[in-house]
């Protein structure tokens, strides 16, 4: 008789308004990636060619919300992921991209596409293919419920590994001393 194989957990990841640093930090688990893929498989992620999130156990979100499409993707993740984790400063409080929040988006766009150094005949890109920018960059918890937060810019590979292994084992994630960082 065959022993039933326990199905692998599904993990999805995405980068919204982030720099990919949190994804790179995830890869900083190094060889433990090979242990992880014994226990879990990837759904939508920049590391796979799956373009839309299906039902998943864990969703990791990097980055805040800077345009309408970010909001759309975040909702897709919340609708599909049992546990949603905000990874890094940008997801938690907007991070560096939120530095534009004290300026009007119109001013920023004008300056960069109109009057910037070395530019010839500028105008603001406006094609319908480009998602509408939001007036301000928002943290993700303002739009959907987030289950866990891993601070840091980026959180270390160690911290991400700890939270993932806790969640996979069914434990409450616990970032003890040394894993909680804010820079």
């Amino acid at each position: 008789m065959q022993v039933p194989v326990k199905p692998k957990l599904k993990i999805a990841t995405t980068s919204l308004a982030g720099c990919f640093g949190c994804h790179m930090s995830f890869l900083d688990i190094d060889e433990r990636l090979f242990d992880l893929i014994e226990l879990a498989e990837f759904d939508r992620s920049p590391f796979t060619d799956i373009k839309h999130c299906g039902p998943c156990d864990i969703g990791l979100i990097e980055g805040g919300l800077c345009n309408a499409e970010n909001v759309h993707v975040l909702r897709e993740f919340r609708a599909n992921c049992k546990t949603l984790v905000a990874v890094g400063a940008c997801a938690i409080n907007g991070g560096l991209p939120a530095q534009r929040n004290h300026l009007s988006i119109a001013t920023v766009l004008t300056e960069i596409y109109h009057t910037q150094h070395g530019l010839v005949g500028g105008f603001i890109p406006n094609d319908p293919e480009l998602p509408l920018p939001l007036n301000q960059v928002h943290p993700i918890h303002e739009v959907v419920k987030i289950d866990y937060f891993i601070p840091g810019c980026p959180p270390s590979g160690e911290a991400i590994w700890k939270v993932l292994t806790d969640l996979i084992a069914g434990r409450e994630p616990d970032l003890s001393h040394g894993l909680m960082q804010f820079d």
Binding site: A17, C66, N67, E69, P97, Q99, R100, L103, I105, T107, V108, L109, E111, I112, Q116, D127, E129, L130, P131, P133
Partner: peptide, 14 residues
């Protein structure tokens, strides 16, 4: 055929 970059951050301004 077009390759679009769809996000904007405005770093040079802020």
């Amino acid at each position: 055929v077009r390759l679009h970059i769809v996000e904007f951050r405005g770093f040079e301004k802020f």
